[in-house]
Each structure stands twice: as structure tokens, then as C-alpha cells.
Design a protein around this nucleic acid. Sequence first.
DNA 1: ACAGACTGTTGCCATATGCAACACTTGGAG
DNA 2: CTCCAAGTGTTGCATATGGCAACAGTCTGT
Lengths: 163, 163
Amino acid sequence: MPRSQGELAEHTDVDAVTDAVLTASRLLVAVSARSIAAVDEAITLAQFRMLVILQSVGSVKHAALADQLGVNPSTASRMVDRLVAAGMVERQTNPVSRREIVIELTAEAHRVVRQVTARRRKEIARIVAKMPPETRAGLVDALLAFAEAGGETQVTTPDAAWS
Amino acid sequence: MPRSQGELAEHTDVDAVTDAVLTASRLLVAVSARSIAAVDEAITLAQFRMLVILQSVGSVKHAALADQLGVNPSTASRMVDRLVAAGMVERQTNPVSRREIVIELTAEAHRVVRQVTARRRKEIARIVAKMPPETRAGLVDALLAFAEAGGETQVTTPDAAWS
DNA sequence: ACAGACTGTTGCCATATGCAACACTTGGAG
DNA sequence: CTCCAAGTGTTGCATATGGCAACAGTCTGT
């Protein structure tokens, strides 16, 4: 195969990878969407994203949470309202600063996040298991290189649900 | 590299790939989200998904559109309402069956879809270009194998925005 | 001719989001 | 110490998304 240095070949190379990436994206998105619905139909994608963030950082104040989610503080505040009502998070006043309120997951929420994540990993692993083993090694190297190459562009937006 | 048939090695293999896939997913989602906002802030992700479907299939009736989007027909109907108001799509009664109404993109919508898609491809291509060229070939083969392996599970859900 | 299926619409409800206006707290500047 | 600016959370208002159920036409096969 022509992994040549020629400009034309190089361009074709990039194009082929781009196409492959876009194709794989479709599959990944579908997998992720399914894994939520399979565990708990009552929870929405946006809510799950919030839960994932809370699980990874422990407890945060509203402003930081809104920041991480990339939404308006008012949106975060009302989402927390609903998650409190659903018994998934708890508000706790910060003793050192009375204007700050920290939010934490309940045990129930931890369980849900674990289940969804496990489900997602399982589904991806199931797909990977179907691949010809020779291609797996290449996929790891290539994906890591891809993530590395894109890492400089900070990934801050709606990532959190895709842990 | 131990691409052995041993069970343990095989399992580790699958785990490594799964991790790599999940990492790459985060990046891909961020890229896709940015590419919409960059072109037209007025359009939402859901609306863009509808536009992409319409562009790929030409014209469809409401029921098929809702099916493709994976939403309730009522939701699709009202989304079309708003897109008509925005001048992005047109409703046309089907002469052969008066109960069917087909929806088509306007020229403006075609332009928007092209721009967003181009932007997304450009951003991915920019990342790919940063990868060590040796790893690109592996990425193509591996991603295609991955998509192939997952293809049997039908990808019908929220795919369309990720073209 | 008519019953049942198909198709789109509308009412009602809940969630998700953004913007702007508020209220309250905190930390400095004077 | 006083008071103002910045920080933080909440609420009102508006729009978009999304599901379910009820409806009103339209078609199709019996």
C-alpha cells in the first residue's frame, strides 16, 4: 500500500482516515445512546452527563458544574432541582462560604452511573471482540495517536457523557 | 507484540481497544459539537440532524423522517414547523397520495449543511494530519473493521448528524 | 360501502437552555 | 468601618425538544 511521501498520496491518506473516523463516529454515538436507555429510561442524556461529572470530581459548586457542562448556571440550577427530586443528588451548603452550595451524588446515582458505564464498555467490547484480532493492535495505536493529535485542541464541551 | 491466542492476552487486547475507543469518542463528540456552533448559532443540533437526513435522502414524508430521527411523529411535525418558519425546508403535498406530505430542503439549508460538514471534515483532517503518518494506515483498517463489526447491530438511532 | 390501517396535526405535559433581573455574600478600597 | 464591585445561586420569561393520546382526513381491501 502506498504510504508514500508524495503530496497526493498524503492527501488521500488523510481523506481516507477522515471518512473512516466519521463512519465509526456514527456507530459510537448509537452505542452510547443505547447504553443509557437500557439502564434507566427515566434519566435523560443531559442528566447523565451531569452525573458523570459529579462522579469524577466528587462535589462541586453550581457555577463550576455549569461550566463543566457548558451550560448556563440557571440551567444547571434547575437540572439539580430535578435530580434532587429524583433522589440522585444532594445540595449541601458550604460552611466556609455561605454563598456557595456544593452538589454531591447519592449512592443511587453512583450505582446508575456504574451500570451505564459498564453497559457501554460491554457493548463496545462486544464489537471489538468481533474484529479480526490482527487489526486490534493497529486500532489501539492509531486511536491513541488520534486522541493525542486532537488533544491540543482542548476537549471541554459535551464530552463528559462519553467516559 | 503478543497477539497470542491465550485467553488472558485476548482479554487485555479487547480492554485496551475499548479504552482507546472511549477516549477517542470524547474528542469526536467535541469536534462535532463545535462544527455546528461555528457555522450557524441559530440552528440546534436536533435541527441539523433533520437537515442532514433530508439532504441524504432528498425528500421524505413526515413518518419516515420521524423514524430516521428516532423521535415521535409529533416532534418531527413541529420541528418541520419551525424549520419552515426559518426558511430551511418546504412542505409539499404528494400528488399521488393526499395524506402524505413530503419535506424538502431549501437552497439555504443545503448551503448550511455543506458548510457544517466541510467544517467538521476540516477539523478532523487537521487532527489526522498531526498524526504520525505510519499510524494512519492502521487507523483506517482498524476503524473500518470496527464499524464493520458493529454494523450488524443496526445503527439507526441518533446517527444522522455524524455524517 | 365500510371498517381498519395509515398519516399528519394538535393538546397537554415535562425537560433542556439561554438571557436578564434579583437577592445575598464576600472581599477590598477608601 | 462603610460601602461598592464581584461572585453565586435563584427565578421569570421565552424557545426548542420530546412523548403520549386524541383527532381528522385518506386509503385499501373485503
